[in-house]
Design a protein around this nucleic acid. Structure first.
Lengths: 211, 211
DNA sequence: TGAGTGTTGTGAAATTGGTAACAGCGTTAC
DNA sequence: GTAACGCTGTTACCAATTTCACAACACTCA
């Protein structure tokens, strides 16, 4: 069994990379792990360990070279090339996500959106062409898309996920508030908005007695 | 002092409750842990462990009573009463979240929104009054709001978080793509959209070997 | 009645992820 | 020159979480 990279590490690497970009613009040449850690709100040991995971090596005297490290992380994450993303559900959330990625995160290209609503299909919304659901098996392989975002109401989420997987999707970011049953080789990340808020509300402490 | 509940458990309880509501409407009287587990895509042992955490006890012969369990979870999560939420940043994402909670999750009331944009302040957007940032110290305590959602661009996130904390906020759900430095007694949940997508894109990129 | 079945509740083990500690090595101070 | 310092890479440790496994119990069916 190959030592896979923990998902949390990948998430932190994404963060480090963005922080490094900011330092790069300021002209900073090198940084120590404790400086990166401070920016990312994690421990220095965590940073070194994460960087060990991608095999990047700094210098004990000068720390990490900002531009070389940024490039290493980008290469590791595949951020050096644009990734095409499919979106299913061009509702309020779908539109917000599409607008955000299109304007702020150029390495993710919302290459195709899908929706059941015939008033939306066939049009370009938030800079992204919206197709009917039945186009999934045609567009996804044709565009070579492997990653999809689900921004749907409850009811159809599982069915849409199945269709995506059948079309060759290998990773799904699910914003629908339902668990999805998927083949083991498809990576699934649930970002159930209701559950997140429920959690935060719970730990914000009950206004009434908690004992 | 009650033994602290893991955050993941709280999230799953939120899910169980929603699933139970659906069964309740169908008139199902009782369920076994493996049935709940199947719906929630977790293991039966996990379900039992989670229910043990809230002290709910089923019967070995009949499993769990659907309505009693639903009520127990609701009580535990505080879902029996409406929770007021503050939103900072009435952009695309903020509007989408507000619309979603207002129409779909009545237990969370978006009680106040804040934005720097003077074209938005003083108006009701997506059913929620939008105030200027300077109103935070007045509105938050007056409304007794303890939980906030941050849906902002990078730049101002930390400053807004500080203002919220000063106003008495005890939990923040952060959608801004930056880490926040907060006092330890404030619960923080990061839902960095870019990092999520980066993670999914990464793991959908290279086929992971299962064995 | 009493064996058989299937479920819960829970102690214990396994696993996962994060932290602490330390050897190795340039660099610097003197 | 050399001793002290501070940082990295790495290993060993620790904490949190999930899974396993099983005793205890109710119900069924002969």
């Amino acid at each position: 069994m190959r030592p896979a990279i923990p998902a949390n590490t990948v998430e932190r690497l994404s963060l480090y990379r963005r922080l490094l970009e900011a330092w790069l613009e300021k002209g900073t040449v090198s940084l120590y792990s404790h400086q990166i850690a401070s920016m990312a709100c994690v421990t220095p040991a965590q940073v070194r360990r994460d960087l060990m995971a991608i095999g990047y090596t700094g210098s004990p005297s000068r720390g990490y070279s900002v531009d070389a490290l940024e490039e290493s992380i980008a290469l590791f994450l595949g951020s050096d090339q644009v990734r095409k993303i499919a979106l299913v559900g061009m509702g309020n959330l779908g539109r917000a996500l599409t607008t955000y990625f299109t304007s702020r995160v150029p390495r993710f290209k919302m290459a195709a959106a899908f929706d059941t609503d015939s008033r939306k299909t066939g049009r370009v919304i938030a800079g992204c062409m919206v197709y009917g659901i039945e186009e999934i098996p045609r567009i996804i392989p044709a565009e070579g898309i492997r990653t999809a975002v689900l921004a749907l109401p409850v009811d159809s989420a599982q069915e849409m996920a199945d269709r995506l997987v059948n079309a060759g999707i290998k990773g799904i970011l699910n914003y629908a508030p339902v668990p999805l049953r998927l083949p083991a080789d498809v990576f699934l990340e649930n970002r159930d908005v209701t559950a997140s808020l429920e959690k935060v509300a719970f730990f914000s402490g009950q206004p009434r007695e908690g004992s």
